[in-house]
Amino acid sequence: MITAPFDYVRADSVDHAVQLLGTHGEDAKLLAGGHSLLPLMKLRLATPSVLIDVGRLAELSYVRDGGDHVAIGALTSHHDVATSDMVATDVPLLRRVAGQIGDPQVRHLGTIGGSVVHGDPASDMPAAMLALRATFVTVGPGGQREHSVDGFFTGFLETAIGADEVLTEIRVPKVPMAGWSFQKFQRRAQDWAVVGVACVRNDTVGIGLVNMGSTSLRATAVEDALGSGASIADAAALADEGTEPVDDLNASPEYRRHLAHVLVRRALEEASR
């Protein structure tokens, strides 16, 4: 399969990328690892007229100590996140999630920023961002903005980032002592999740759901119930509240709802040990 023709330009810096987005307008797309965008383009489900390659911006590939948070450059590969000592110590959930994305080849090229901006409800990373209450930093013509993860995933493959903005950094609060769990229910080793649950628990709890609607979702009802002292079993029974799981080859909506109950319960049990 061959993509539709497009023009290719390479950005030398974040500012250059913003400038190129301004010049080429709405039909331009940033290219990071290409592991979400190129498959769509090969199927001609996406036909951007210009690709702006930011994949070589070494300035956006890093894991740094931000004090109360770990600061991760948007262009950091899943492989580099999964093998970072700082991530392993301060946000072990993130290490697990990054390490279970696709396979080694996918993790070598796919980036954390691409996963976040692509906004695919079947993707694991956005759910982990919800559980961990991450903050996203973007740069556009008007300068720098910070976005809370809540409200960022606005629709199927849609996020709050502007078409003229570049995601530069992901800030993940450090939770070295928190309990955590990542439950990815899949049919075969390398598959996407049929349903997934990312969970962090210390004095508060954060739960993100994979593939339970048209966006990645926070299990708000479960979080609230636990906050008012509900048992794990009672709280987990609310796991599908506010969700609209899809019907596809892998599972029916009813089965996905059932999975959400079971996986949220397992996640909470593991995170509460």
Partner: peptide
Amino acid sequence: TSSCGACTVLLDGMSVKSCTVL
């Protein structure tokens, strides 16, 4: 479609699926 790995090559020493790289 980046599933089977038959097209795997090394890019700067790391395995990648060359059907999903320009």
